[in-house]
Amino acid sequence: MLPPVVAGIIVALLALMLVQGLVTNPRFEWNVVWKYLFNENVLNGIGWTLILTVASMIIATILAVVLAVMRSSTNVVLRGVSWFWIWFFRGTPVYTQLVFWGLFSVLIPRLSLGIPFTSVEFWSVDSQTVMTATVAAILGLALNESAYLAEIVRAGLEAVDPGQGEAAQALGMRRGLIMRRIVLPQAMRIIVPPVGNETIGMLKTTSLVLAVPFTLDLQFATNAIANRIYKPIPLLLVACIWYLVITTILMIVQSRLEKYFGKGFEQRAIAAVEVDPHFPGKTSGDLKNEVDKVNQTNWVGLNA
């Protein structure tokens, strides 16, 4: 084995060589990068990319909580619909989904609310007025994302020790209160890291909205300039720099959140696995395999 100091020096040298190569390579045209870094269209693109990311993540999170609760419902219809939703939106490419959302008003010219298979109609509207490119892009991204988030939320809720709910019940707390005060805050600790992952993933997935087509996001804006001035590489660098800046900010937010929801838990313990002897014949309190669940959550996040 190399001593760490030697290994460190070697890695540092390699990194320096890489940086030198990037900075001095004339084909990267850093002067062009600098010229367009704060271009008005680029800055607008950043704004739109952020809007798409935030809006779709908020909608997806709300849907995901609903789907996760439906998934653990005793009602077969609710469970089935939730399962189908997750199966469908995880099982088809997001690019294809976005194409369909873009074609929505062509495929379904009128939206109406009524009783299926009858002529009873309470309300209807022209699809084109509702389904603008922005709405199509946000919905397309959100619905796809909700399927992934639903699994993360479900695994997070299930990882909370059932003894917690029982202790809360024994204190006279009711279901809604238990969910809000006891279960969700503990589930958040497990949910936040993969959701942070998903948000960073979403930031870059927004570049697929050209499938709708939605043409104002960062990737499209830089690409448009590149096509105009025949310099694709520097404009790709511009996009990369901004994606990295935003990712850095998101990572800081994520670590703050993790710290906040990690209160009272030891840093190293991913799940609350305590040293506790197994008592057979118990109807409650048996330790579920929490580590597995946590891992599962993280896998779901990484597979996105």
């Binding site: 003894g163 202790a167 809360a168 024994a170 006891i182 805050p185 305590e274 309190g285």
Partner: peptide, 13 residues
Amino acid sequence: LGMVFQRFNLFPH
């Protein structure tokens, strides 16, 4: 009724 559990079940957060 007050109840005390084998595994304490304190709220860890």
